[in-house]
C-alpha cells in the first residue's frame, strides 16, 4: 500500500491496488448483467458505481484542514533509528479518519492515525533508520488517506524544512588513548568544568546544564550562578584525527566517536582536534554533543 512514485502532478488523487479489484468486479457485474439482461444485477452495478463516485469527493476532502508539523528531532548515531515526532492538527469541522504519514524521501517509514476529531490534534512518532552521518533534511512529509472505501488515495505533500543530524556510527577496536597532552599555556592542570571538587561560582550562561546552578543562592534572592567544579586530572585528552594511522576517514571518525563516548562515560575531559577545527577539552552534555556534531559534519 505504498505510494508509488512521488508524482509532482497537481491532482492529489491516485488509485490504490484495490481500485483494480473494483474495476474487475464492475466489469464482471456489467458483463453478467448485460448478457442476461438482468435488471437487479444492473442495480447492483449502479449501486457500486454510485457509492464509488460519491466516495471520490469524500476521499478528496478527507485531508482538508489538516496541518502536520514535524517537531525537533533528536540526533542519533548512524545505524540507529531517528524518531520524528509529528503533530497533526485538524482545523476543519469534521472528524478526519485513517490518515497515514509517510516520508517519501526517507524509506518506508509509515504511521497511521485512526481518527482526529475537529479542532483536535494527534501526535505520533515516525521512525526511520539513520543511514549516513551528516546533516540531512526531512524533505517532504506526506499525509495520505484512502478513507472511506480504500479505492482512491488522496495525498497532501507538506514541505518539511526540518533538519536532523546523524552522528557517525561508533565503532573501532582501538583503546582510548591513555596519554595526555599537557597544555603548555595552561597554568593549572586542573580543568574548570565538571568534576568533584568545588572551585567557586560564576554567572550562569543560558544553555548550560541546570544541574550546577547554585539553587541555594537563587533561594536567597541572588542571580543565577553556576557552581564550578574541578576534576582531578592527569592532563588533557585530545582526540586527534591526524594522529590516527589506520583505516579510511569514516573508520577513523567512527573510532573518534567511540572514544568520545568512552571518555564522556569515564568522565575524562576530552578535546577534539580535526583539521582546521579544535575543540578544547571539557566534559558534559553540551560538549559531548558539540563534539559528536562536529564529527558528523566533518567533510
Amino acid at each position: 500500500m505504498r505510494q508509488g512514485g512521488s508524482s509532482k502532478s497537481g491532482f492529489p488523487l491516485t488509485s490504490t491496488r484495490s481500485f483494480a479489484g473494483l474495476l474487475f468486479v464492475l466489469a464482471a457485474i456489467w458483463y453478467a448483467a448485460s448478457s442476461q439482461n438482468n435488471a437487479a444485477s444492473y442495480l447492483l452495478l449502479f449501486a457500486l458505481m454510485g457509492v464509488f463516485l460519491v466516495s471520490i469527493p469524500r476521499t478528496l476532502l478527507n485531508l482538508g484542514g489538516l496541518q502536520a508539523t514535524a517537531e525537533s528531532i533528536k540526533p542519533a548515531f548512524a545505524g540507529q533509528e531517528i524518531s520524528l515526532p509529528v503533530e497533526v492538527t485538524n482545523e476543519s469541522r469534521a472528524t478526519r479518519y485513517g490518515i497515514a504519514l509517510t516520508l517519501p524521501d526517507l524509506g518506508d517509514a509509515r504511521k497511521r492515525i485512526d481518527e482526529i476529531p475537529p479542532g483536535k490534534a494527534a501526535r505520533t512518532v515516525l521512525r526511520f533508520p539513520a543511514a549516513t552521518r551528516g546533516e540531512h533534511e526531512i524533505g517532504r512529509l506526506h499525509l495520505s488517506s484512502v478513507y472511506p472505501l480504500g479505492f482512491l488515495r488522496v495525498l497532501k505533500q507538506l514541505p518539511s524544512p526540518q533538519r536532523y543530524v546523524v552522528y557517525p556510527k561508533p565503532a573501532g577496536d582501538q583503546r582510548l588513548p591513555a596519554e595526555t597532552v599537557r597544555s603548555g599555556q595552561r597554568s593549572s592542570q586542573r580543568e574548570l568544568g565538571e568534576g568533584d571538587d568545588f572551585a567557586g561560582v560564576r554567572a550562569y550562561v543560558r544553555g548550560e546544564s541546570q544541574r550546577h546552578i547554585d539553587w541555594k543562592a537563587v533561594a536567597r534572592g541572588q542571580a543565577l550562578m553556576t557552581k564550578q567544579f574541578t576534576a582531578e586530572s592527569d592532563g588533557l585528552l585530545y582526540l586527534d584525527l591526524a594522529a590516527m594511522r589506520f583505516g579510511d576517514l569514516e573508520a577513523r571518525l567512527s573510532q573518534l566517536t567511540l572514544w568520545v563516548i568512552e571518555a564522556e562515560r569515564a568522565r575524562r575531559p576530552y578535546g577534539l582536534r580535526l583539521p582546521a577545527i579544535e575543540i578544547p577539552p571539557s566534559l558534559g552534555e553540551p560538549h559531548f554533543h558539540h563534539c559528536l556534531r562536529t564529527l558528523a559534519l566533518f567533510q
Binding site: 469527493p57 469524500r58 476532502l61 482538508g64 484542514g65 482545523e91 476543519s92 469541522r93 475537529p118
Partner: peptide, 16 residues
C-alpha cells in the same frame, strides 16, 4: 459530485 464536494467543503472547512 462537484456540488456535493463543494457542499462538504463548505461544511467542513477550517473555522476561523
Amino acid at each position: 459530485l462537484a456540488l456535493y464536494a463543494a457542499w462538504t467543503h463548505l461544511r467542513t472547512r477550517p473555522c476561523g
